[in-house]
């Protein structure tokens, strides 16, 4: 193709055209990069974004009964991509002392049912497959593969903050989803 288009007998002309070909290649490559780099960032960026912990204020610590489980509701600003919603979540909290509170995810570690507190027996009972958990979250009976999942908590100025998380179900290790 090149041999046909250039004029070998005119070396200045050939040099000029060679230069054009090189210039088109160089400029085309830079234009391509100027578009390709942002595109890659655009498509890849959000996929590997680290989750930022989001603390939700749940209750005043002093309002929780000592050594007794209490179900707490709180609003959480959930954010998935462009979807931002205010959702109401429930957790189980057990106040151990003035400065120590354990918060359990309300989801049974077996297959994801919502368990409840049995005040008579003093145990958590999952109605789906009969898993039983103690006040410390340990499995007492049933098919649950691991203890109840605890959620990250912090106490500031007498107020309890919880970070909502979900974990893989049906396995013995606690792995965040």
């Amino acid at each position: 193709m090149d041999e046909k288009m250039s004029h070998p007998d005119d070396s200045a002309e050939a040099t000029r055209r060679d230069f054009f070909r090189i210039a088109i290649g160089v400029l085309g490559t830079v234009v391509g990069l100027v578009l390709a780099i942002p595109l890659v960032g655009f498509l890849v960026g959000p996929a590997f974004r680290k989750k930022i912990p989001r603390w939700a204020r749940v209750a005043k610590v002093e309002s929780l009964p000592l050594g007794q489980p209490a179900v707490l509701s709180f609003t959480d600003q959930s954010s998935e991509g462009y979807l931002r919603e205010t959702v109401v979540r429930n957790v189980w909290a057990v106040r151990r002392s003035a400065t120590e509170v354990t918060v359990f995810s309300p989801i049974c570690t077996h297959l994801g049912c919502r368990y409840d507190w049995e005040p008579n027996s003093g145990r958590f009972l999952c109605p789906c497959h009969g898993s039983l958990f103690g006040l410390d979250g340990k499995v007492l009976a049933g098919p649950a593969p691991r203890p109840l999942d605890t959620l990250p908590v912090k106490i500031e100025n007498g107020e309890l903050f919880v970070e909502w998380e979900r974990f893989e179900l049906g396995i013995s290790r606690k792995i965040p989803v």
Partner: peptide, 12 residues
């Protein structure tokens, strides 16, 4: 919201 998400929260 999805347009504003891609404009402000997605790289480039």
């Amino acid at each position: 919201d999805s347009v504003n998400f891609l404009r402000t929260e997605v790289p480039f």
